[in-house]
Simulated scan of single mutants.
Amino acid sequence: MKYVLRLLPVAYMAVIWIMSSLPSNHFVELPDSEIDRFIKESLHLIEFAILYVLLVLAILTRKGEFTARLNILCAVIAGLYGLTDEIHQSFYPYRSASWFDLVKDVTGILVCFYFIQGALFKGRFVRLRDMLGIVRKF
């Protein structure tokens, strides 16, 4: 299980890269274009937050202490990958890249960072801390 958790961030990053290379309507396009756009724009809030959480889970499976610095490093890596993704999208005529998309990416990361930081280092969110502790045992 720990090896699966360690490989998940890399696999997820590959999926992001591939999907960023395709038109936004390649997989799904809803009949109402406004709703379709709203949902796809909202996904920026969770796409890189998921990457951050996967990075945290991967690091929790290794021996050694998970420090606040490692937690920040996970958030920075996820944010930098969000920036890389926006740059990557700018090379495709059927995709768009914007600073606002990057802000949404980072916002999602920061929300998850708040909860994980609170659970692991501030004594808050006990259930989340317990769930992360289970991952630590892998």
Rank of each mutant, 00 (worst) to 15 (best):
S96N: 13
V106M: 08
F100A: 13
F100I: 15
F100M: 14
I109M: 01
L80F: 09
D85R: 05
Y114W: 12
L102F: 14
S90I: 05
F100L: 15
F91M: 11
F115L: 08
V111M: 06
T107P: 06
C112Q: 03
G82T: 02
L83W: 05
V103F: 15
L80T: 05
I109W: 03
D101M: 10
L102S: 05
F100P: 04
Y92Q: 14
T107F: 15
Y81D: 02
I87M: 13
F91G: 11
E86L: 07
A97Q: 06
F113P: 01
L102G: 05
V111P: 02
A97C: 12
V111Y: 05
S96H: 13
I87W: 14
Y94P: 07
F100D: 11
Q89P: 06
G79F: 01
H88D: 05
L83E: 03
V106I: 15
I116A: 03
E86G: 09
S98V: 04
I109L: 03
R95C: 08
D101P: 12
C112E: 01
I116P: 01
P93H: 11
G79V: 01
E86N: 11
G79E: 00
L102M: 14
F113I: 04
I116R: 01
D105E: 06
Y114T: 13
D85A: 05
Y114L: 13
S96V: 11
L110W: 07
D101T: 08
I116G: 01
D101W: 09
A78M: 01
K104W: 10
G79S: 09
L110E: 01
W99V: 15
S96F: 10
I109V: 06
T107Q: 07
E86K: 10
V106K: 03
K104S: 12
L83I: 11
L110H: 03
D105Y: 04
H88E: 09
F113E: 00
T84N: 12
T84H: 14
S96E: 13
V111N: 07
V103L: 15
Y94R: 06
D105H: 02
Y94A: 07
P93T: 12
I87L: 15
V106D: 02
I116C: 03
